[in-house]
């Protein structure tokens, strides 16, 4: 029975604290204003949260109020004032959060619903697309003046979808088996992941290196750069000669890479920045083509004897030649960069 007594003592102690605080509060007339603001009934869930919080506080304070039996009537009023202040603080924060959340949600929804935002990027003529596709294979050695990049997304998007289709074809003919996923998902994920991921990465690098390029221009540049990949992969998935692939890889893939590098160089100032930016882009672009070819290439030789064993795991996507070739890649890319600079 001693514990309740101690608790009661504690409660009276807190009550004394409250009382001290109330004395401070009595100077200002804020309590009255808070009482007025208590009953605004705008229905938001965040406010309900605030009220719940407030109710919990109230319960705590009621316990405290029980301790002091002989509290005067006016003190209750002061208590309400206190609670009003706290509740309003919480409510203001909650209200602000609610407003910000609502604004963001409505903006996202209008983005989703309003397809017109994207329409300017699809404003092209067939002739323009054709010339841009051809231009993506022609590196222009004009470094002193910033080259023009069209901020357009139709061509890149279609090229990425074409690449997806070609990749599906390659996966099918190479009997690639992907666990925990479908071929379709892997192809789409690879192509879109490369396009969006590398574009964002290079854009970030360009920002660091102070290159004059926007995100849409970057997407367009890299997307049209995939044209070389499409040609190379389409040919080499059907005609299986390693030498042919390397010729295509260096010729077609190299040309499209050089074109992108030339454009980026013309828009960057400073040798170090140019080297970082273009080296990264060239290496990523060429290695991606190499990966796509060897990961989903039809493996004709060397697989038959390994499949003899009874408990062989199914052939996974193994890039066989990459370690050997990657040195050559680096050398060639380095040469290419050296040539362009």
């Amino acid at each position: 029975m001693s514990a309740p007594g101690a608790a009661a003592g504690g409660r009276s102690g807190t009550a004394a604290d409250w009382g001290g605080f109330e004395d401070n509060m009595q100077g200002g007339g804020s309590a009255v204003i808070d009482m007025e603001n208590m009953d605004d009934t705008s229905g938001s869930s965040f406010e309900d949260m605030g009220e719940m919080h407030q109710r919990m506080k109230e319960e705590e304070e009621e316990e405290a109020a029980e301790g002091e039996a002989g509290a005067a009537e006016e003190e209750d009023g002061e208590f309400l004032g206190m609670k009003g202040l706290r509740g309003q603080l919480g409510r203001q924060v909650a209200d602000q959060m609610w407003q910000v959340g609502k604004r963001q949600a409505s903006r996202a929804f209008s983005l989703y619903a309003n397809i017109d935002i994207l329409r300017p990027y699809f404003d092209v003529e067939p002739v323009q697309v054709r010339t841009r596709l051809l231009e993506s294979m022609i590196p222009v050695k004009m470094i002193n003046f910033p080259q023009k990049i069209a901020g357009e997304l139709y061509g890149p998007l279609m090229l990425v979808f074409t690449l997806v289709a070609i990749l599906l074809h390659g996966m099918k003919t190479s009997d690639t088996i992907i666990r925990e996923g479908t071929l379709m998902g892997t192809a789409i994920g690879t192509c879109f992941g490369y396009w969006l991921g590398v574009s964002s990465f290079i854009y970030f690098l360009a920002y660091l290196c102070n290159a004059q390029i926007t995100m849409v221009q970057m997407l367009s540049l890299l997307g049209y750069g995939l044209f070389g990949h499409c040609i190379t992969l389409f040919v080499t998935y059907n005609i299986h000669f390693h030498s042919l692939f390397y010729i295509f890889w260096l010729g077609v893939g190299g040309l499209s890479t050089l074109r992108m590098v030339a454009v980026l160089v013309s828009r960057t100032v400073g040798h170090t920045q140019r080297l970082i930016l273009c080296g990264t882009l060239a290496a990523l672009h060429m290695l991606f083509l190499l990966y796509l070819h060897f990961a989903y290439h039809k493996v004709v030789e060397g697989i038959l004897d390994t499949l003899e064993g009874p408990n062989m795991p199914p052939f996974q996507r193994v890039a066989r030649d990459i370690p050997v070739v990657s040195n050559a890649v680096l050398n060639t890319t380095a040469k290419a960069i050296a040539l362009t600079l």
Binding site: I115, R119, Y154, L157
Partner: peptide, 10 residues
């Protein structure tokens, strides 16, 4: 995708 593309092209 085709439908969205045709919508985007006007």
């Amino acid at each position: 995708v085709i439908t969205l593309n045709s919508k985007l092209l006007g």
